[in-house]
Amino acid sequence: MAVDFENEIKQLRATMASVRDVTDLDRLQEQITELETEASSPNLWDDVDHAQKVTSSLSRAKAEHDKVTGMDARIDDLEALVELGQEESDAETMVEAERDLARLRKDVEQLEVRTLLNGEYDEREAVVTIRAGAGGVDAADFAEMLMRMYLRWAERHDYPTTVLDTSYAEEAGLKSATFEVKVPYAFGTLAVEAGTHRLVRISPFDNQGRRQTSFAAVEVIPLIESTDSIDIPENDLKIDVFRSSGPGGQSVNTTDSAVRMTHIPTGTVVSMQNEKSQIQNRAAALRVLQSRLLLLKQAEEAAERKEMAGDVKASWGDQMRSYVLHPYQMVKDLRTGHEVGSTNAVFDGEIDDFIEAGIRWKRGQERAQD
């Protein structure tokens, strides 16, 4: 069936119009101008941390601006290619136009997903925690596989990450790990990854080669900002210090620099051991604790609203994805139905399609409840 290029291009332009409205290119250009002025200051590198923040923010803002404006130019190029092919009745040119259209559709859809991220904290950077669940050493190994998957995903997009804490299991893998994804909209993007992940495979740790099902939990919270009003009285905190440990429980630090911070009223516990000093670990632990309490407060308010509305539906984030390596290979999202057979690619960070489907699904759930 012949492709209706006129209608396809019209739809692409309509989608890009909504993308530009949400992106607000004028505001973004103002931000770029301000950052360029700051980056050109001769004293910029007097504060290395601040300078790195300015330069990375400038790079991201330019990339976002260029991505939107560049897409408009690509649609113009496609339209010109189609006109040329039709005028000259050139079949080869029309085949090329179909290929360009397919690529454009996918890229525009990815930009469109950003327009769905309009939650209260969606613009924030993210703190991701992965915990091994039921399944013994297989679950700990699965937790490490998931951590690598998310770090590879971030690397593919040039998103900076910082590992804040790793608690190694005795035999292999991780009991838990916490890391930051330090780009705008990281929370809104990754929030759909929160929930219970399940792995089915022949256990490499079972001498009899039996099939094993193991679980890991993923938590995603927005990174706290200085403007957020989450005050924690000193009396509400219990702070313990200990030595950092590596795989197998071996000590990797000769001083008590690691910090475990407990919020007594809620029982929330945060551990940090990846910074070099106790002061740095304490500051990082407090930041993550404040972020968790902020999300907890938001969840409690949402639960109260649901209770008043008589909504008794289960949370959307539970038991959300299965990774099957035996007897067949498949990764399937149990909420959206999206599935692929390339399990190696998924564990190597190719999860954009799952994330995009999850964002669209979550937005649809929210609309249905409004």
Rank of each mutant, 00 (worst) to 15 (best):
R114N: 01
E339D: 10
A285F: 03
R360Q: 08
P233F: 03
K53A: 14
D47G: 08
E8R: 10
M71Y: 01
R367Y: 08
V183Q: 05
L44T: 12
P204G: 01
K306S: 10
V127M: 05
L101W: 07
E300N: 14
M145L: 09
G337K: 08
Q365K: 11
Y323R: 10
T336L: 05
V128Y: 05
L104V: 10
D49W: 01
L25W: 01
L104F: 00
I32T: 00
I130H: 00
L164K: 07
V252L: 11
R103C: 06
N43G: 09
N281P: 06
D122G: 06
A51K: 07
T268A: 01
D47E: 13
E356A: 09
R282C: 06
E180F: 05
Y159S: 03
S59E: 12
L81D: 03
N7G: 06
I202Y: 11
T178N: 07
Q86E: 15
F187W: 04
H326N: 13
E88P: 00
Y328W: 12
K175N: 11
S245R: 15
A154C: 10
Q280W: 02
M330W: 03
G364P: 01
V48R: 15
E6S: 13
P222C: 02
E92H: 12
M16K: 02
Q298T: 04
V200S: 11
G310C: 12
D66V: 00
L117F: 06
Q250F: 09
H263A: 00
E112R: 04
D231K: 10
M308V: 13
A134R: 12
V220P: 07
S229A: 15
V137C: 01
T213A: 12
T115I: 05
A169V: 10
S245I: 14
D158I: 06
D228R: 06
V252G: 13
N118P: 00
Q31N: 14
R292Y: 01
T336R: 03
M330Q: 14
M145N: 04
G195V: 08
D206V: 08
E275A: 15
H157Q: 12
M149R: 05
K10Y: 11
L237G: 08
F5K: 05
V269T: 13
I230P: 08
L190M: 11
P265E: 00
M94E: 09
D66K: 03
R287Y: 01
T15L: 09
M261A: 06
E112G: 03
E98V: 13
D26E: 13
F354P: 02
P222I: 02
A302S: 12
A303C: 09
